[in-house]
Amino acid sequence: MKPYPCLVAFLVSGSLLATSPCSAAESPSVATAGHEWAFLAGYGITHRGFGATRTQVQTADAIGRFGWFLSDEVGKGSWYQGRHELLVELPIHLAVDQRDRIMTGGYLLGSWKFTGLADEKLYPYVFAGGGVLFVDLGLPTMGTRLDFSYQGGTGIQYLIGKDTAIMGEYRYHHVSNAGTAEPNEPLNSSKFLVGVSWFF
């Protein structure tokens, strides 16, 4: 039977794998994966005085994310080498200084994942998008419980296994009722998140 050096090296030992031709990238999955699951958790705080934001709201955040890669690698060899990704998120924002009230809903985001640092197992990304939130903060300044969010941010993933990465992320996060009711105080905030993702 014809030998398959890469497969043999993988089965024999991890050390052989590290020097075998197929190990070039311990991380080929990010360049070839079709989808991504991720879970993020962290902290958010509004910026009073930024725009019309007057109320301090601090949140404990938990976000489930599912991603679809929309392209193969684009721009190989350039600084922007990467892949388009569509992200769907299901967030829960627990407002710790508003008697543990919540905001929850859904986000649709577009993302660009840079793949040019694959040798270092690093995958920076940027994203932007928006969604709809049910806001139960008990703030009369917000006018309605059905609100809208737009947001954008950046993050970085570090591959710790063939298909698994840890991640850190910052995002600017806006919530308001988009003028559908009065009053309409927006919540402009920063969110700092960490998480783990799986590629498949």
Rank of each mutant, 00 (worst) to 15 (best):
M1Q: 11
M1G: 14
K2Y: 06
Y4V: 12
P5L: 05
G14R: 10
S15L: 08
P21G: 11
C22E: 05
S23D: 06
S23K: 05
A24Y: 10
A25M: 06
E26G: 01
S29D: 06
A31R: 15
A31T: 05
A31Y: 01
A33D: 09
H35L: 12
H35R: 15
W37R: 13
G42P: 09
G42V: 04
I45N: 15
I45C: 09
G51Q: 03
G51M: 02
Q56T: 15
Q56D: 10
T59C: 07
A60F: 11
G67W: 08
W68Y: 15
F69W: 01
L70G: 07
D72A: 12
E73W: 00
V74A: 10
S78N: 07
S78F: 11
W79R: 09
W79V: 13
Q81H: 02
H84W: 15
E85V: 04
L90K: 03
I92R: 04
I92N: 03
H93T: 00
L94I: 04
A95P: 02
V96D: 10
V96S: 12
D97V: 02
D97P: 01
R99A: 10
D100N: 10
R101T: 14
T104I: 03
L109A: 03
G110I: 04
G110A: 07
W112E: 08
K113W: 04
F114E: 03
F114K: 01
L117M: 13
D119N: 14
D119Y: 09
D119V: 07
P124G: 02
P124H: 07
F127V: 13
A128I: 00
A128P: 10
G129W: 05
G131P: 11
V132G: 03
L133I: 01
F134M: 09
D136H: 12
L137I: 05
G138S: 06
L139H: 07
P140W: 09
G143I: 06
T144L: 03
L146N: 10
F148M: 07
S149C: 05
S149V: 08
S149Y: 08
S149A: 12
Y150G: 02
Y150H: 14
T154I: 13
T154Y: 13
G155K: 12
Q157P: 00
Y158P: 00
K162Q: 13
M167N: 13
M167S: 14
E169C: 12
Y172K: 01
S176I: 09
N177S: 08
N177Y: 11
P183D: 05
P183I: 05
E185T: 01
L187C: 06
S189R: 13
S189C: 06
S189Y: 14
S190H: 15
L193S: 08
L193H: 02
V194W: 02
